[in-house]
Design a binder for these strands. Structure first.
Length: 907
RNA sequence: GCAGGGGUAGCGAAGCGGUCAAACGCGUAAGGCUUAGGACCUUAUGACUCAGGUCUUCGAGGGUUCAAAUCCCUCCUCCUGCACCA
């Protein structure tokens, strides 16, 4: 016989479609389960990496269907943003890399031409392609609810408008400026992926403190404005060029290297004129907070490229300054360094760190890092810092800046955390974008609400919860709209297009109504309509209100979302926005109930990216393997583990399915009795049901597979090995195996189920029930003993190097079993040998033997009669296996015979 | 830099205080079956032994404990995200 898993696939996919079992309707008498995966961006083909995530969701959907849930698993497509247009543009420009990648994915020349003319054609092409792939690998998706985003879908755009009006009404939208890394040559923001150098570098805010000298301003740039109380002087670099520049009504002295920064970041900037910086040396400036006079001093270590080229010197809190000021003091200057920050248990933090790293420039810089870190995290302002005394350094930044602002001494300037170079070759700078629209993710009350949501929901794997909570801590406002790309315009400022991460936060609600919304007149679909559908206690809109009722009914049945499934890279962006927007817009009863985060499918240890994925597409995969075979790989991972693409595993699939199929065809002829090995198998079947169910529930698919596919398979083999031949037991095994494995291998199990003689579809049929009464630990233990003994016999035979004439197996006597079991009971309480001995008060040689090693105390309960029975029933098998006479001796006299370890005598 | 997660046999991994030389899978080797085998079956796969035995390991180093891969500390190292990139 042969069962070809590729051939049966289509049959069952058609059947599921025909019976529309993936198209659930509202049924209030049935519990529901709503599961989604973030929509894909159709700018290329679906590859095995996509399959990994979607299969994980599909397995869950099918599992829940068998648990009796009414399951909704919909799928939409994301068109918002730049990449679709970008890809089309690249085709249009004739970019060979892009075109080659598309050709590899099977795109025809005619289609390529269409892509170049119309980005929408490209998106639609891949939308169709994705859908075929989803279907071909057996996703149980309800396609009636498919939709696309952007203004290409005016219904969806209305929905997004509603969302943003809601956020704005809640005070969660704000307008402001925003620093970005910028390429001056290409005149565009310079994202990580566009950089030749400096990935991960970002804009960094420096506080400018204005120190005045006459009508000149010396703008000292610093990351630590709180140290101003300890400032002893300013530094300038006497070997570099400086300019005076008009900023508003003021004249600032800055390094020549800082000129560009000023021009790019400040609006009102006047003429630049070179100054002789040496003329200012030894002159005094005024500390704006303390009123002290501070001298301007030269220092060659001032890097004029950083900040403004003017630096505030704080010797007690900055190693470089300490070094510089010490030199001044030695040359006879009267400077009195002052400590303004205390760190517990660290009295000489600067001196100590200099000692540690040395007085070289590099050493001083390393020391600086340590000092900054310690003082920032653990420092407290001391009595030298005026009104700020007692405040933690972490908390003091805001108040200090306010104080500086009040005295007209504050400004800010952005630098980069490191050098950035664009792919075009130009060096990146910081640019302040004006009039941006932000979502106020920094809002504290909003974060608190979301924190509650996160604490309440289910999170798989659990460690992700901590990461989400930590992400909330640093989350800041996010620019939510751009001037270009596809999308929905901001309802109150139509020049701006809502960007992709912002229009994908609550659209799961849209799935509930997507298949019915077009029955409503678009003109009547105003905000009040969405209020009515999605929010509790809202009035029904006067026009067309009745048309909304079926939508509201759908939403109220399906929401909240029960499970969102995705890979780990979306955790700190998409997921956090998804949760925050739900917390803001929906009632607590409609907050998401669970998320699952998984790792990636890797090839040679590397994540499948778009470029790599081009060769490992679903279509390619299906040329060689069946859908179930591919799904097996997706089921290999637990939690956030990455899973390596390893086609060799597929061999295990064929071989096992083949064996099951063989049993299926022959078991009916068996007429054997039910024996102890039957009790054993039934016990194991129940354990497997329990373990597999628990693993599936927790998305531990690798463990589930180990139990329900590999583990139980080994048990049935053992069953046959030990002479099992009972039809009912085997039937029980087959039925359980087929059902348990259905979520992972839906096609082949349907086929097996039919061969099994069951008419109804497996999909949606009842999940096997775990029966704790059928767990028989004693029998399991004794079978273990039998197997160990067989191993031992083999061992011995190997040693004596000859065919045995006769094997005598001696089972220990009842008294010994009693002692043994008492030790087992005690060992459950303590592993302390002396205590066990005390508790038992028995004198026996066996006891001495058992208590020799605390790490090897017996743990399995055993039973003398059962041990005898197991061995007696296995006698025929042993005779066959060892091709000789086998004698089982009860109550063996031999001292070697222990409970659980019968004596073996080979003649 | 900040946050989170890892480092266990040739590989993927399980174990998360005591039945652990380490489940399960892959790979490898030998034998069987075969015209043959990438198919299947059996056995082996840390080291040393050889009548069912012993010893050593879980990134490195310290510590807690009768007992640690498992708990604590320090260090090394890998992966992920850090926002205008979807």
């Amino acid at each position: 016989m042969d069962l070809n898993s590729k051939e049966v696939t289509k049959r069952w996919q058609d059947k599921w479609r025909k019976e529309a079992i993936f198209e659930p309707s509202v049924n209030t008498s049935k519990k529901k389960f709503f599961i989604t995966v973030p929509f894909p961006y159709p700018s290329g083909s679906m590859h095995l990496g996509h399959m990994y995530t979607w299969t994980r969701a599909d397995i869950y959907a099918r599992f829940m269907r068998m648990q009796g849930y009414n399951v909704l698993f919909p799928q939409a497509f994301h068109f918002t943003g730049g990449p679709i247009m970008g890809a089309a543009q690249k085709v249009k420009d004739g970019d060979p890399k892009t075109i080659e990648a598309f050709r590899k994915q099977g795109v025809s020349e005619a289609d390529l031409k269409r892509f170049a003319e119309d980005p929408k054609a490209l998106a639609e092409y891949f939308t169709t392609s994705f859908r075929e792939d989803f279907d071909n690998i057996g996703m149980s998706i309800d396609w009636r609810r498919k939709f696309i985003t952007t203004s290409l879908n005016p219904y969806f755009s209305r929905f997004i408008s509603w969302q943003f009006n809601k956020l704005r009404a809640l005070g969660l939208i704000t307008e402001g400026k925003h620093p970005v890394v910028w390429c001056p040559k290409e005149v565009t923001p310079l994202g990580d992926h566009d950089r030749a150098e400096g990935e991960g570098e970002s804009p960094q805010k420096f506080t400018i403190i204005k120190f005045r000298h006459g009508d000149f301003v010396f703008p000292a740039a610093t990351l630590r404005p709180e140290t101003i109380f300890g400032a002893t002087n300013l530094w300038i670099n006497p070997d570099e060029e400086y300019s005076a520049v008009k900023v508003g009504a003021e004249r600032w002295i800055i390094s020549k290297d800082a000129e560009n920064k000023l021009t790019n970041q400040f609006n009102a900037i006047g003429k630049l004129e070179p100054v002789k910086i040496k003329d200012f040396l030894k002159k005094d400036v005024i500390n704006p907070l303390t009123g002290e006079k501070l001298p301007i001093e030269p220092a060659e270590f001032v890097d004029t490229k950083i900040g403004t080229g003017v630096v505030m010197s704080v010797p007690m809190h900055a190693p470089l300054d300490f070094y510089g000021v010490n030199k001044l003091i030695k040359s006879g200057q009267n400077i009195k360094p002052k400590k303004v920050i205390d760190v517990q248990d660290e009295n000489a933090i600067v001196e100590d760190s200099i000692k540690r790293f040395g007085e070289t420039l590099a050493g001083l810089k390393d020391a600086t890092k340590i000092v900054y870190k310690k003082e920032f995290n653990h420092g407290v302002m001391n009595s030298n810092s005026g009104e700020f005394a007692g405040i933690a350094v972490k908390e003091v930044d805001g108040p200090i800046c306010t104080a500086l602002k009040e005295r007209g001494a504050y400004a800010e300037i952005y630098g980069l955390t490191g050098r950035v170079v664009c792919r075009c070759g130009a060096e990146g700078i910081v640019k302040i974008l004006e009039k941006q629209w932000f979502i106020r993710y920094s809002d504290k009350a909003w974060k608190d609400k979301t924190r509650r949501l996160i604490e309440k929901m289910k999170v798989y794997p659990e460690e992700v919860r901590l990461q989400l909570l930590n992400t909330l801590d640093w989350l800041d406002d996010k620019a939510a709209a751009r001037k270009g790309g596809l999308g929905t315009p901001l309802p109150w400022d139509k020049e701006w297009i809502i960007e992709p991460l912002s229009d994908s936060t609550i659209y799961m609600a849209y799935y509930t109504i997507a298949h019915k919304i077009e029955q409503v007149d678009l003109n009547s679909l105003m905000d009040s309509a969405f209020d009515y559908i999605f929010l509790d206690g809202k009035e029904k809109p006067k026009n067309e209100g009745a048309a909304l009722d079926p939508l509201k009914k759908e939403f109220e049945y399906w929401y909240p979302l029960d499970m969102r499934v995705s890979a780990k890279e979306l955790l700190q962006n998409h997921f956090i926005f998804f949760l925050m927007n739900h917390a803001a817009i929906f009632g607590e009863n409609n907050w998401p109930r669970g998320i699952q985060i998984n790792g990636w499918l890797t090839v040679s240890g590397e994540k499948l990216s778009k470029s790599k994925g081009a060769t490992l597409t679903i279509k390619r995969g299906l040329e060689t393997y069946s859908a179930d075979q591919l799904r097996m790989i997706a089921a290999a991972g637990n939690g956030m583990d990455d899973v390596e693409w390893d086609p060799a595993t597929i061999n295990a699939f064929d071989q096992r399915i083949g064996f099951i199929y063989e049993i299926l065809q022959t078991y009916k002829n068996l007429k054997g009795e039910s024996k102890l090995i039957d009790a054993y198998l039934i016990s194991k079947i129940n354990r497997t049901i329990r373990d597999a169910t628990e693993s599936l529930e927790n998305f531990r698919y690798g463990s589930a597979l180990a139990a329900m596919f590999f583990g139980i398979y080994n048990e049935i083999k053992l069953y046959f090995d030990l002479g099992g031949e009972n039809r009912n037991t085997i039937q029980r095994f087959l039925s359980t195996f087929i059902k348990l494995n259905h979520p992972v291998f839906p096609h082949i199990t349907e086929e097996l189920n039919r061969s099994f003689g069951v008419e109804n579809l497996l999909e949606g049929s009842a999940w096997p029930i775990f029966n704790p009464d059928e767990i028989d630990t004693l029998v399991e233990n004794e079978v273990r003993v039998l197997l160990n003994t067989i191993d031992d016999i083999k061992n011995v035979i190997k040693i004596i190097k000859r065919q045995p004439q006769k094997i005598e197996i001696g089972i220990s006597n009842k008294e010994n079993f009693d002692v043994y079991n008492k030790v087992v009971l005690q060992a459950e309480k303590t592993k302390n040998i002396i205590e066990i001995r005390k508790a038992l008060r028995i004198n026996s040689k066996l006891l001495d033997k058992l208590l020799k090693n605390p790490n090897k105390l017996p743990e399995m309960q055993l039973e003398e009669a059962l041990e005898n029975n197991i061995f007696s029933q296995a006698r025929e098998h042993l005779k066959r296996a060892f091709k000789c006479e086998v004698v089982i001796e009860r109550h063996a006299k031999e001292e070697k015979s222990l409970p659980g370890k019968p004596s073996i005598n080979i003649l």
